[in-house]
Design a protein around this nucleic acid. Structure first.
Lengths: 240, 240
DNA sequence: CCAAAAGTGTTGAAGTTACACCCATGC
DNA sequence: GCATGGGTGTAACTTCAACACTTTTGG
């Protein structure tokens, strides 16, 4: 029988980029205390792989298939649901609310435009919140978010995963702002462009921005072959 | 009550360096089929933190406290114990041998000289085996070992954790061979020495090797303050 | 014509790689 | 005195950081 396993859950940190700042998808548990937000997550099924469970949770939530997903690690204090509000919530959704639960955290990168909000089995409302504005979350989700940010910062330096956050066509400035948002520090425009171009993972399109009140910028797509090569082998250092 | 949690285990990849090659501590399950070796690991207690469980398992096995330990991630196919020999073993040691188990893997670095083999609750015999000689392990332990090696390769480039594998006093050649063993590639002797010295994490002692049939080499200790600083903040790249 | 963002090169400093010989010891 | 590993410097090259002005568009 494929039943929910009450001891193991997955939680997902879904990042999205709105061309200005980094956002995270959080679900709202309805009441309006300060820790009402949580990361999307759920128990796994007994015969489900961990990665499959995370994929399923994300697909239920966002409707997106083939989402970029990577495990961060396992979390789970014996006392992770010590807050009153967390315990009450668990009682309302779980058959064994008192069980010790280990959660396996994932981080995920999506193109914000792909996400169409809709209800899911574990969330009535999900919404994008700026990473910088989050100072409190349910359970140990703030710790998980923090680990996800660190992982993202590290990985962006050695793999071109940032492209998962951008639409098919994008400008170098957008990519630039993306890196600044993730690394939380300014990067020199000219040096950034030079480095990216040398990696040879993007190709200019025969197309420019239009309708902008300034010089229209060149649009690029990324170069799938090179991208996949670098995603596999990584590169030693982006040099940032 | 603090009972074993039959759903969650920890497994540890314990690396040791014998001045020539990298070794891993494996336990022998006694029978002599080809997959008889396993990584040390055990179920966690219900009220135990994951990190504490790993620390406990390692202390039971090696008697070493304050061991360097870091989580790799969670593993656990629904079918991870599909081999006949694994199932039989589980029946002999677990109260719920059929349960779905998620294991949280850790990697650990120890000074080989510190390890005094002795029996533990989950292993009659533990022994060091060269990493390169391992081609088969119980359950999904080969996959875990492989993840541990990758993690170690990455981390050694940005944190000076290698010192956990060496005795208090060591020579630059030993450190050099350690890096080569971990990275599995030759490193230029002079360039290696220059880089390490520039990091300023080691200090020469007023002492040299003796009894060696060649020029005795300078002994070093590592510089704890600088080491701890770099362990925290990391460095962008060792340049290897 | 003004505001706004796009796009572009150079220079000095630092870091990287590759490479070969002498040194101190035990036997 | 010989075998063994220890220890050292330099030159060519590449990479990096810092920095300011011109261009194109919409309004």
């Amino acid at each position: 029988m494929n039943e929910l396993n009450p001891h193991i859950s997955v939680d997902c940190v879904v990042f999205g980029f709105d061309f200005e700042k980094l956002n995270v998808l959080v679900i709202d548990r309805g009441s309006n205390d300060t820790s009402r937000m949580a990361l999307p997550g759920n128990l796994i099924y007994n015969y489900e792989h961990l990665d499959e469970a995370a994929t399923r949770v994300l697909e239920e939530l966002t409707g997106i298939k083939n989402i970029y997903l990577e495990q961060i690690g396992a979390f789970g204090d014996p006392l992770r649901a010590k807050k009153q509000s967390d315990q009450e919530w668990l009682k309302s959704i779980r058959s064994e609310p008192g069980a010790r639960v280990i959660t396996v955290a994932y981080f995920s990168l999506v193109k914000m435009a792909d996400y169409i909000p809709h209800a899911s089995s574990f969330a009535k409302v999900a919404s994008w919140v700026s990473v910088k504005e989050i100072s409190l979350l349910a359970f140990d989700h703030l710790e998980i978010l923090s680990a996800a940010k660190d992982t993202l910062k590290q990985k962006i330096k050695i793999q071109p995963i940032g492209f998962n956050l951008l639409p098919e066509k994008f400008t170098l400035s957008q990519l630039h702002r993306l890196y600044e948002a993730i690394l939380e520090k300014p990067l020199d425009k000219r040096n950034f462009r030079r480095k990216i171009q040398k990696l040879d993972i993007i190709s200019p399109l025969r197309e420019k921005q239009s309708g902008v009140p300034h010089k229209p910028s060149q649009l690029y797509k990324f170069n799938k072959e090179k991208y996949e090569l670098l995603t596999k082998i990584g590169f030693d250092n982006f040099g940032f």
